[in-house]
């Protein structure tokens, strides 16, 4: 494995731990600075549901004790750090006695399935469109795609989501407007279920793809034009290589490198940016869960979700970083 030194890997792992620690600390502090008391909020909800709550004071006190909210802040913090390090995210405040791990485990596959697939699709489609736009032999028809996709880029994903819902779910009734699969179906690896999942994920995925595709295309087009002017492209032509070979191995192979860096950044932005999309489509993913956590001042749920998001994104960026020397041979993390 060329380009990676032991020192670099260790250093990079240290950076990874530091990032996760900083992230977890921030999510410990922020909810405690926000207005609203989670236990009071829960009592309030109980009141609206079941009219009268007896011994509300005792319940509040019991909850506070149970969740350690009576401890001094620094004790809470160290307990929290310890629990985070052992991936023990505890119980939800608002949905007690649901365990946060279980709640996340239920919604995370949906988010990964939707967001990750949507991001990869928009990366592939966007880069393909961008590369084709810069390519001299590309038919004129495809050249119309860039202005169109750029138009969508300037509209936020949730606006596109609402438009898609209106046209394709309400007016045309082609797609369902909420949920992750049709009610009454048993989750399993059968065609009916998978078909239903794809049908439900289609519109939210489209809204993400339509919005992010344009910027990939624009970036790739610029990179491809730069690459096309390189001397090695002319030499490849002089060598009599086929246009396909030149396009892929000499053109895209070199133009894609900065795009891959941008992909790592997009991974991070994705986690936060798609909460709204999940809310609009009532898609039971992590974003939707986070939204509910925020509505109910559910500290522990918010912390748990954001913690997993931070760890997930950090791992993804770490992997991207460590594999980069394989993608670009000029980048080495070795001391010469």
């Amino acid at each position: 494995m060329g380009g990676l030194s032991k020192e670099y890997v260790i250093k990079r792992l240290g950076m990874f731990l530091l990032t996760v620690w900083l992230g977890t600390t921030v999510i410990f502090i922020v909810p405690r600075m926000a207005p609203g008391d989670p236990v009071q909020a829960m009592i309030g909800r109980m009141l609206t549901e079941g009219s009268n709550v007896e011994n509300a004071d005792q319940i509040v006190e019991a909850y506070r004790e149970r969740f350690g909210l009576n401890d001094p802040v620094h004790v809470q913090y160290f307990k929290y750090l310890y629990n985070s390090a052992t991936f023990n995210t505890g119980y939800s405040l608002a949905f007690f006695p649901s365990r946060i791990d279980d709640m996340i485990a239920r919604s995370l596959p949906w988010t990964i399935g939707l967001l990750f697939v949507a991001l990869i699709l928009s990366f592939i489609i966007g880069n393909a469109v961008g590369a084709l736009l810069a390519w001299r032999r590309t038919p004129k028809m495809i050249r119309w795609l860039l202005p169109i996709s750029l138009t969508f880029t300037s509209i936020p994903a949730y606006m596109i989501g609402i438009m898609l819902l209106f046209f394709f779910a309400f007016m045309l009734d082609w797609f369902p407007y909420a949920g992750n699969y049709a009610r009454g179906l048993n989750p399993g690896w059968d065609l009916e279920f998978i078909g239903s999942v794809i049908k439900h994920a289609f519109l939210p995925a489209m809204s993400i793809i339509m919005v992010s595709m344009g910027s990939w295309a624009l970036g790739m087009r610029g990179m491809m034009i730069t690459t096309d002017g390189e001397d090695y492209m002319i030499l490849a032509d002089a060598k009599g290589l086929t246009p396909m070979r030149i396009f892929w191995r000499y053109g895209i192979r070199n133009a894609i490198l900065p795009q891959i860096t941008a992909f790592g950044v997009a991974l991070g932005a994705l986690a936060g940016g798609s909460v709204l999309v999940e809310i609009i489509f009532t898609y039971p993913g992590v974003g939707y869960l986070l939204y509910q956590g925020i509505l109910n001042s559910d500290f522990t749920l918010i912390q748990g979700i954001v913690f997993y998001v931070i760890v997930g994104v950090s791992i993804a960026v770490l992997i991207l970083d460590l594999t980069y020397p394989l993608i670009d041979p000029r980048i080495t993390y070795q001391r010469s």
């Binding site: 001397d231 090695y232 030499l235 191995r249 000499y250 070199n254 490198l257 000029r330």
Partner: peptide
């Protein structure tokens, strides 16, 4: 200097 593809041996 720039006539060789930087990503190919």
């Amino acid at each position: 200097m720039n006539s060789l593809n930087p990503t190919m041996r």
